[in-house]
Computed example of a mutant assay.
Amino acid sequence: MPDAPRVLIVDDHPLFRDALETALECAFPSGAEATHASNLSGALDILRSHPVDLILLDLNLGDCAEFEGLTTLLAAEPGCPIVVVSATETPKAFQMAGALGAAGYLPKSMSLEDLSAALATTLDGGTWFPKTNGTHLPASPAAERIASLTPAQRRVLAGLSAGLLNKQIAHEMDISVATVKAHMTAIFRKLGANNRTQALLIYQEDTSVGSASNA
Rank of each mutant, 00 (worst) to 15 (best):
V177P: 01
T127I: 11
A102Y: 00
A76K: 10
F129A: 04
Q198D: 12
Q204E: 15
M173Q: 02
Y105M: 01
L115M: 14
A19M: 09
G101H: 12
L200R: 07
P107F: 07
A186E: 11
S30E: 15
R189Y: 12
P141T: 09
I82Y: 01
N166R: 00
G192W: 00
L200Q: 12
A152M: 10
L100S: 09
C26S: 15
L15A: 10
I82S: 03
E89R: 13
G98Y: 11
R189I: 08
K167G: 00
S109E: 11
A76N: 02
F94N: 04
G192C: 04
G125L: 10
P81V: 05
A19T: 11
A19D: 09
M96H: 08
A4H: 12
E33Y: 11
Q204P: 01
L157Q: 02
F67N: 02
N133R: 10
R145C: 15
D53R: 02
W128Q: 05
S140C: 14
E205R: 07
R155I: 05
N214H: 07
P78K: 05
N166I: 00
Q168M: 08
T179R: 14
T132D: 03
I187N: 08
A19C: 06
L100K: 12
N133A: 10
F188Y: 15
A152D: 09
S109C: 08
M184P: 07
L47W: 02
L201D: 13
T121L: 14
A143L: 06
S208K: 05
P138S: 15
T132H: 05
P107M: 11
I55P: 02
D63F: 06
G104I: 02
R48C: 06
M110D: 13
M1Y: 11
N39I: 03
S208V: 01
A4L: 11
G31E: 05
D45E: 15
A120M: 14
Q198S: 13
G42C: 10
F28N: 04
I187F: 12
A162R: 11
A170T: 00
L54K: 00
A37M: 03
R189H: 14
S30W: 13
A182I: 01
I175C: 14
A75S: 05
D174Q: 14
K131H: 11
A87L: 10
I146S: 08
L165M: 15
